[in-house]
Amino acid sequence: MDGPDDDAEATVARITAAQRPLAAYVRTLVAPWGNPDDVLQEVNLVLWRKAAEFDGRGEFLTWACRVAYLQVLAHRKKLRRDRTVPFDDAILADLAGPVAEKVAEVDDRLDALRRCLGTLSPDARRLVAARYADGGSVGAAAAEAGRTPESVRVSLHRIRKALLNCVRKRLSGGVP
């Protein structure tokens, strides 16, 4: 018979397996106005505490995204005590559903992204690597490339758009 330790193992396995899509979900909803790292930690705590409430029906990730959404709203409420947060509940509600659907296929997206990264020029790859390294920033990438931050900003945006088009094509089966 399953004991408490078995339950704990199953919970840890589910939560750890959901980290990548949850991180993407929280960042997408929170990044422009709050602290996604703090929210993700809070989400993990709540998931840990409420794991027993997951009834095993449906997808764990769907349930976890609902939990995360409530934590996003709570984070917004906290920040609103000190300042205006223009992303209101209506915007977050409109974003939450579609974003949850997109992160459910995050492994496919990541696989497509890895292939698309391989199609970038060496200069573009270097720029992306410098921007997304731990502690990386536009300024750091510009310093490393010997360019102005403004020109790097424009390049990074173009690269992201190119990657986005490539990922979309791959996900829709347009590229082998």
């Binding site: 974003l95 997206r109 990264l117 270097r126 690597a129 997304y132 731990d134 490393e144």
Partner: peptide
């Protein structure tokens, strides 16, 4: 909203992936 979601999701995946610079000439 759809463009925003797609773009920010890509950014989140790049943050997760931390792509490496090309191997032949590693970035300083």
């Amino acid at each position: 909203r759809d463009r925003y979601a797609e773009y920010m999701l890509l950014d989140a995946l790049l943050r997760w992936e931390k792509p490496a610079a090309p191997a032949a000439e590693p970035a300083p």
